[in-house]
């Protein structure tokens, strides 16, 4: 067993874990933070996306021990404590960015990282689609997700352009 200290959603957590414990299982099984989903468990679907030191990663393809000393942010940290939705979450609701909702936590965590990566730039549909390649959705056909992210990004202060036609 290895002792790890991980700051999860702003709270410092310590645990003794097996080296083979996946970060996603640590979050879901140990901390009971079940908002982070396991979809494919093969590094493809992105439903398990969390932020590790501010960067989006697939928690099913990261060991908990690799996160020792790091900051992890999950979907549970996104809305305000009183339940008020984050602008990105509100945009997903407003623009029908989800149907069954299973991929949504990963989509939101990827979308938030995407916004931070593109601060100072003009966000286009092409960039959103390219940077969303690590997240799969089996319901929506992505149109509404792209639209939601564009709206959410705008609400977060990003310049958004070139969305004509397709969405």
């Amino acid at each position: 067993m290895i002792d790890v200290t991980i700051t999860v959603n702003g709270e410092t957590k310590t645990a003794s874990v097996e080296p083979r414990l996946l970060l996603v299982d640590y979050l879901r099984e140990t901390l009971k933070l079940t908002g982070t989903h396991v979809g494919c468990d093969t590094s493809q679907c992105g439903a398990c996306t969390v932020q590790l030191d501010g960067r989006s990663v697939k928690a099913c393809t990261t060991l908990a021990v690799q996160a020792d000393g790091a900051r992890v942010a999950t979907i549970e940290s996104v809305a305000a404590k009183d339940g008020t939705l984050h602008p990105m979450q509100a945009a997903f609701r407003e623009h029908h960015g989800l149907q069954c909702g299973f991929c949504t936590p990963g989509m939101i965590m990827s979308a938030l990282a995407l916004v931070e990566r593109n601060r100072g730039a003009v966000l286009t549909e092409a960039v959103i689609r390219h940077e969303l390649e690590g997240n799969l959705c089996r319901c929506t056909g992505y149109q509404s997700i792209v639209k939601s992210i564009a709206a959410g990004a705008k609400a977060m202060g990003l310049a958004v352009g070139d969305l004509a036609g397709n969405i």
């Binding site: 590790l52 960067r55 990663v57 697939k58 990261t62 990827s110 990566r117 940077e131």
Partner: peptide
């Protein structure tokens, strides 16, 4: 390479 999450790791 891959996707953003893969490129981050």
């Amino acid at each position: 390479v891959g996707d953003p999450q893969v490129r981050n790791r």
